[in-house]
């Protein structure tokens, strides 16, 4: 009888082409010859893994790294790597990693699985716990090693939304370069700590930053320049201060934009009420909220609503004419 392992290459290639992603991973485990054959195969000949979301999580609890692969919102596969036990666990099956470093194993596994991902991910999520202070753990290398390996292979991950939850700037900055700029729509930064400050000047030069449309940051952005973020909508961020001139620049950008949706800024303190009144005229004031209304360009019925609350929150969004406060002035569109 002819054995499956003695099949000519063209035949194996055909069989793999008709198999699903799981079957190919299984075939890869059958024997060395299959593994080499599959690993040498051009990515285009592999079936699509069709994941919608991938999560990469490092957890301080037991020094673990977890990879979650979602097929849909509710169904996912989870691989758990434990540094303490030096093991990998998948569907109740434990594998001892022997002399391998777990970060290297995670990256190899991830790289292998990403070879199969052809459709765009809706969501790629990173969560980096703080391992800097744990001298005996190598997990703090995860963001940097991930960055290096993807950089080496010049591989970009096609995901619409990148979410990063982290402790510090270097962890945050290591991730966006992975993203395929043509696919990326949303950069979403979350912080483990309250009021953590980051410099963001490194990231704004990237293609990813320029091409993304939506942005959210729980990190406090130092030295915000509104020109760097005026193309995002929604744009949700926190920063120390913003000037009346900055707000006027945003207003002018937003009323001309057909894509603008909303912006929310949390500020340390806004103390340029006089300057903004000089630029925009007196605010319509209700319960410590200051409101201004501006007609959008090319749309008479749509009104840009600017709102400053308690000198700490700046909100800007589009409303219909009939939602304007009674008695408030609506400024007509003006090029200047």
């Amino acid at each position: 009888m002819s054995s499956l392992s003695k099949m000519p290459e063209l035949v194996l290639e055909n069989i793999i082409g008709f198999s699903d992603f799981r079957s190919v991973l299984t075939l890869r485990q059958v024997c060395r010859d299959f593994r080499n054959f599959i690993d040498d195969l051009n990515d285009s000949k592999l079936p699509d893994s069709k994941f919608t979301k991938i999560e990469i999580i490092s957890e301080k609890n037991e020094n673990k790294i977890i990879l979650d692969f979602f097929h849909s919102k509710k169904s996912f596969d989870c691989i758990e790597y434990s540094e303490m036990e030096n093991s990998r666990k998948f569907q109740e099956k434990m594998t001892n990693l022997e002399n391998s470093n777990i970060v290297d194993v995670v990256i190899q596994d991830l790289k292998l699985i990403l070879k199969f991902q052809k459709s765009n991910l809706e969501f790629l999520s990173f969560c980096f716990a703080d391992f800097q202070l744990q001298k005996d753990s190598s997990i703090h290398n995860l963001p940097i090693k991930l960055r290096n390996i993807l950089h080496e292979s010049n591989q970009k991950i096609k995901a619409k939304k990148f979410t990063i939850k982290a402790h510090n700037q270097s962890q945050i900055m290591s991730v966006p370069p992975f993203a395929d700029p043509e696919t990326l729509e949303f950069i979403d930064l979350h912080s483990f700590d309250d009021d953590k400050k980051i410099q963001y000047d490194e990231i704004i030069k990237t293609e990813q930053w320029k091409k993304a449309q939506m942005f959210r940051s729980e990190f406090h952005l130092l030295n915000l320049n509104v020109e760097d973020i005026c193309h995002f909508s929604p744009c949700i961020l926190t920063t120390n201060r913003i000037t009346a001139r900055d707000l006027d620049f945003l207003k002018k950008t937003y009323i001309r934009s057909s894509k603008f949706n909303f912006s929310i800024f949390e500020l340390k303190n806004f103390n340029e009420n006089d300057e903004i009144s000089n630029l925009w005229g007196p605010a319509f004031s209700v319960e410590s909220k200051l409101h201004w209304y501006f007609r959008m360009k090319n749309c008479e019925e749509k009104i840009l609503h600017m709102e400053i609350f308690l000198a700490r929150y700046f909100k800007c969004y589009i409303i219909e004419m009939n939602h304007v406060h009674n008695g408030a002035i609506v400024h007509d569109y003006n090029e200047n």
Partner: peptide
């Protein structure tokens, strides 16, 4: 053959 491999 691909069908026969599936799920094994």
């Amino acid at each position: 053959v691909a069908m026969m491999v599936k799920g094994k």
